[in-house]
Each structure stands twice: as C-alpha cells, then as structure tokens.
Amino acid sequence: MEPTAALLERAKRGDDEAYRALYGVYRPAVLRLARSFARLDADEVEDVIQETFVRAFRALKGLQQTAAFERWLLAIARNRALTLDARKEQARRSTEALFEEVPHQVPAIPPALVLERESAVVRELVEEISEGPEKETVRLFYVEGALSAREIAERMGVGKSAITMRLERFRAKVKRELLRRVLAIQME
C-alpha cells in the first residue's frame, strides 16, 4: 500500500485516486469515532463521515505537517460529531463554534506519543476496569468494534447517554495513560 505521506502529496495536487485511497484507509477510523456518539443515528454517522472528509480534503493544502494527518482528521471528525450531537440536544452553540470545524494549526506532538501504535495499550487499560457493565461496554465498542454505541445501548437495555458516558470515561483513562507517558519522557 502506498504510504500516507505520498498519498497526501498526490491529494494536495488534486489527484482523485489519492483522495479515494485516503478515504479507504481512514474511513473505518472516522466511522468508529462517529459511532461512539450514541445519540447519532446511522444517517448522521454517515453525515459525519462525509463532512469530515470533504472538509479535510478541501483544507488539505493548508496542512503543513503531513505526519499529523491522522490526528488532524480525527479532530475534524470529533468536532463534527460533537456539533451534530449538540444539535440533537438542542444545545445553544455560538455561530463561531459552528464554523470552528477544521483546526488550522496542529500543535507539536510529543515524540513519545507518536510511537503509540499498539492495541496492547488499549487492552491493558480495558483490563484495568473492574468486571461489570462498564467493562463490557468498552470491550464491545473498543475491542470487538462491531457494534455502534447506539447498538450497544439497545443490546444492553440501557440509555444511549449511559453508553456514551461509559465510553468517555474509558477515553479519559486512555488520555491519562498518554499524558503519563509524555511526562515520563520529559523526566528522562
């Protein structure tokens, strides 16, 4: 498979096949992210995916650090999903917030984090959770990955917001571990 960096260079020149290849590589990740928002239905999940790639591809020429493409794309996707999710709650958001879809700058990422490419980290954190519904939710979504958060809510017979909260609590554990690793590197 052609490396992402090469695909990005071609895509920046408007190469349609490069766009298609990037979409193929990264759609599953954007899909998983969007499906973690239990309030979003299947149509809205597809909206998130489409909007994410359209916005990313349109703004691609401005992306200076191609190495940051993955997290940049996922940040766009999360912003998009959060916006739709907030709309579903009819939460009031400012006009500015609605337009703040594409991060214009990608901050320097600690080198230690760039090395984080192992599902083992996720597995270890899952094992850290006590047996019970929370662990089952996380296992179904982040380890097995076949069900959306909405589908997990239906299967477990609990509210969609409960599933979202469980997944967010687990994401907080992941963030704790990542932050710890950054700090460990800084101490060396």
Binding site: A29, R32, E116, S119, V121, Y142, V143, G145, L178
Partner: peptide, 10 residues
C-alpha cells in the same frame, strides 16, 4: 486518544 482507539485499537 482517538488515533489510538480508532486507528490502532479496534
């Protein structure tokens, strides 16, 4: 975190 969970996790 999303990269870890959604690209390398599942």
């Amino acid at each position: 975190a999303d990269r870890l969970l959604h690209i390398h996790g599942a």
